[in-house]
Design a binder for these strands. Structure first.
Lengths: 248, 248
DNA sequence: ATCCAATGGATCGTTACCAGACCATTAGAC
DNA sequence: GTCTAATGGTCTGGTAACGATCCATTGGAT
C-alpha cells in the first residue's frame, strides 16, 4: 500500500509540515486536538492524577472523531503526560504537567494583545460576578479556588495551574459562555508568556493577597472595587511581562 | 451558530445532514466558509457593489482551499447575493444583502450571552479608544462611520450594516486583534437577534444620537463618559431585545 | 492588431478525517 | 467462578477538503 514508509522510523503520526491535504481552520484537526488537551491540563481542568473522560465522550466534547483523539492521546502518552489503562474503571489519567514551549519566538504584538484583552475580560468578569448573588455552592467554590492558590509555593507550574483555575472560576461564575471561553483562551496565551519569565516568589505572594481582596470585594458585593482590584492585578502581570519580554 | 440552509436549493452539492466524513471545528468547512462570507457582508466589510478579493486571495484569508471557497461562492451566487465576472478586472461582486434567517429557533441562553458579552466588549472598547490619541485618519474614519449611520433611514438592513460598521470601527481603533474579532463575532450574533424584532425608527434615531455622544466622548478623551455611554447604548438594545424575544 | 496579466472556471490525485463496527481487557457484581 | 458493563485498542470503508495544474475569458497596455 504505502511505498514511502521507512523501516526503523515508526513515523509518529505527524509532526512538521503536513504536505498533503491539510485541512482548514487554523492548522489541522490533529494538532488542534493536542492543543486543546494540553490547554485543558494547563488551565487546571484536569489536574495531575485526574482521569480524563472516556475517549468516546472526550472526542464528542472536542468535536473530533475518536480516531483523531486517540492519535493525540498517543502523542501525549509518548510525551509522558498521560497514561491509559484498559478495562472497566480504566481510563486515561494525567501523570504530569506538560513542559513549557520556551523555544518559540515571542511576537511582540501577541504580548500586547493577550495582556490587554485579559485586562478587559477579567475586569468585566469581576465586576459582573460582584453584581450577582452567589449561591452557597458558588461561594464555596470561589473561596476554595482562592485558598488552593495559597497552599502551593513549590513550583511555578503548580501555581500557574491553580492561579488559572481561580481566575477561570470567576469567569465561570458569570454564566456567560462567550466570556468563559474567551477568558480560557486568553488565560492560556498569558500563561505561555509567563513561562518565559523567571518565577518570583514575592510576586506570587502579592498575587495571592490580591486574589483574597478580589474575593472579598465580590462577596461583599462591591462591583467597582472588584473591577478595580482585578484591573490592578492584571496590570501587575502586564508590567511584569512587558518588563521581561518587551523588546527595547 | 451557523445556519445558512436555504429552501429551494436546486441541488447545490450538499444540504442537510452531511452523512459521511464530516469534519471538525463546528460543522464542516464548507458551511463555515459560507457563514464567514455572509458575516463579512452583513457586518459591512463588503458593501453592496463592492468587489470581493480575488478567489485565490480570499481563500487564503478564510484559510480554506480555493475549491471549497468556490463551492461557497457558487451557493451565494445561486442565492443572488453575489455575481462573478471573468477576465482581468473581473471578480466577484456583492449584489444585495443576504436575507435574514427568521426561521431558526431562539435559544434563550443565546440571547442572554450575546447581549451581555456585547456590553462587556463595547464598553471596554469605547473606554480604551477614549484613552488613546487618535491619528487624524482615525478621527476621520470614526466620524465618517458615525455620520454614515445618519444618512440612511430607509431599510433596516442598510442601517444594520452601517451600525455594525460604526461599532466595529471603535473596536478596530483599539488595535487589539482579539477584541476586534470577538466584537465582530458578537455583533453578528446580536444582529441575528435584531432581525427578529420590528424596525422602529424612533429607536434608530435615538441610537444615532447616542453614537454621536460616544464619538464626542472619545474625541474629547473622556474614557469614563465614553464607557458609560457605550454601556447605556448597549443596554438600550438589550432591553429592546429582551422585551421582544425573551420568553415570559 | 497583438500581447499580457489577472481573474474566474474546471479537473485530478492525495489524504486527513470521520463513522461505525468489532476486539481485548478489566474490576466489580452476582 | 462466572457474568457484565465500561473502558481502551483495532480495523474498514467512505468522503470532504486539500494542493496543484491547466483552461477560458477579459480589458487594458503595447
Amino acid at each position: 500500500m504505502d511505498g514511502a514508509e521507512e523501516p526503523g522510523s515508526p513515523r509518529p503520526a505527524v509532526s512538521p509540515p503536513r504536505p498533503g491535504g491539510q485541512h482548514a481552520r487554523g492548522g489541522n484537526v490533529f494538532e488542534h486536538t493536542i492543543a486543546e488537551l494540553l490547554r485543558a491540563i494547563r488551565l487546571g481542568k484536569y489536574l495531575v492524577g485526574d482521569k480524563l473522560p472516556a475517549e468516546r465522550e472526550l472526542a464528542a466534547q472536542i468535536r473530533v472523531s475518536r480516531a483523531t483523539l486517540r492519535q493525540a492521546l498517543i502523542e501525549l502518552q509518548t510525551a509522558g503526560i498521560v497514561t491509559s489503562r484498559r478495562g472497566r474503571y480504566g481510563g486515561t489519567f494525567v501523570t504530569r504537567l506538560p513542559s513549557a514551549d520556551t523555544d518559540e519566538r515571542i511576537d511582540p504584538g501577541e504580548l500586547d494583545d493577550a495582556v490587554r484583552f485579559r485586562l478587559v475580560l477579567e475586569t468585566a468578569a469581576a465586576r459582573i460576578v460582584a453584581e450577582q448573588d452567589l449561591s452557597p455552592n458558588e461561594v464555596a467554590a470561589l473561596t476554595a479556588a482562592e485558598t488552593d492558590c495559597r497552599t502551593v509555593f513549590a513550583s511555578a507550574e503548580q501555581f500557574r495551574v491553580l492561579d488559572a483555575r481561580f481566575h477561570l472560576m470567576i469567569a465561570e461564575l458569570t454564566h456567560m459562555p462567550s466570556l468563559i471561553s474567551a477568558s480560557a483562551a486568553t488565560r492560556d496565551r498569558v500563561n505561555a508568556l509567563l513561562d518565559r519569565i523567571p518565577f518570583i516568589h514575592t510576586n506570587v505572594e502579592h498575587s495571592c493577597d490580591q486574589h483574597r481582596e478580589i474575593v472579598d470585594a465580590i462577596l461583599t458585593s462591591d462591583p467597582d472595587r472588584a473591577a478595580d482590584l482585578a484591573a490592578q492585578h492584571a496590570e501587575g502581570t502586564e508590567k511584569l511581562l512587558r518588563g521581561f519580554l518587551e523588546q527595547r
